[in-house]
């Protein structure tokens, strides 16, 4: 097959690609959120060694290109650790870790945004550190961080397109394949772009909705 016209089946292909992109995005966001928040808790409790380790790892992840991290995991790990790494595994590990690093930064700054005076009050009334975190800090930190988190996730959705480079059949990779077959780059990349746009919009509106709910609790702040 040289090049050929579009077929209705191409729509299915694009939607499959979109499914892979969204699926990987959801999985890696979830893992990234959990790990990033966990790192934030490590820092909150000032657990020695672990805390320094977390800061170090997140610094490295934040300050190096995702593409380099991806190549390291996909090509470097098999060579060095003698393990098998599939493209999807490499994508999940890399994107999750990268998301976690940025979630950690947001978690730390939102925990620090909570006034010391309230925390002291809660401690004086006998709440444990964990109870303070759970009842006083976490609800306010969540409301504070939802905006930056949404912005981060919208960005991470775009970043997933990098994984097409190592052969994951995501939306960008399907776009590249269709482009090669039809030689109609304008139509193909417009369609792919619109699909990314719609997915990003969905993430953003989900974030806005969550923000409204969390802030309903804190509308009193007049924010």
């Amino acid at each position: 097959m040289r090049f050929a016209e579009f077929t209705p089946y191409d729509i299915v292909l694009l939607l499959q690609g979109l499914g892979v992109t969204v699926g990987l995005f959801l999985i890696t966001s979830l893992i990234g959120l959990l790990v990033g928040v966990l790192w934030g808790v490590v820092r909150f409790y000032r657990i020695p060694v672990l805390m320094q380790l977390v800061t170090f790892v997140s610094e490295i992840l934040k300050n190096s290109p995702v593409l380099v991290q991806l190549f390291l995991v996909f090509f470097g790990f098999p060579a060095f650790f003698h393990v098998n790494v599939t493209p999807v595994q490499a994508a999940i590990v890399t994107l999750s870790a990268n998301t976690a690093a940025f979630v950690y930064v947001i978690a730390v700054s939102s925990i620090e945004s909570i006034g010391r005076d309230q925390v002291e009050a809660a401690r004086v009334f006998g709440l444990s550190r964990w109870q303070v975190l759970r009842h006083v800090i976490a609800p306010q930190a969540a409301a504070f961080s939802i905006g930056p988190l949404t912005a981060l996730l919208v960005n991470q959705l775009q970043v997933t397109s990098l994984i097409s480079v190592i052969g994951v059949l995501d939306l960008a990779k399907i776009g590249a394949t269709l482009n090669l077959r039809t030689l109609k780059p304008f139509i193909v990349w417009t369609a792919v772009g619109i699909l990314y746009y719609l997915a990003a919009k969905a993430v953003a509106s989900l974030g806005a909705w969550a923000e409204k709910r969390l802030r309903a609790h804190s509308a009193f702040r007049g924010l």
Partner: peptide, 9 residues
């Protein structure tokens, strides 16, 4: 407390 230190949420 002097400045109340209530939990705002």
């Amino acid at each position: 407390f002097q400045l109340f230190n209530l939990y705002p949420h």
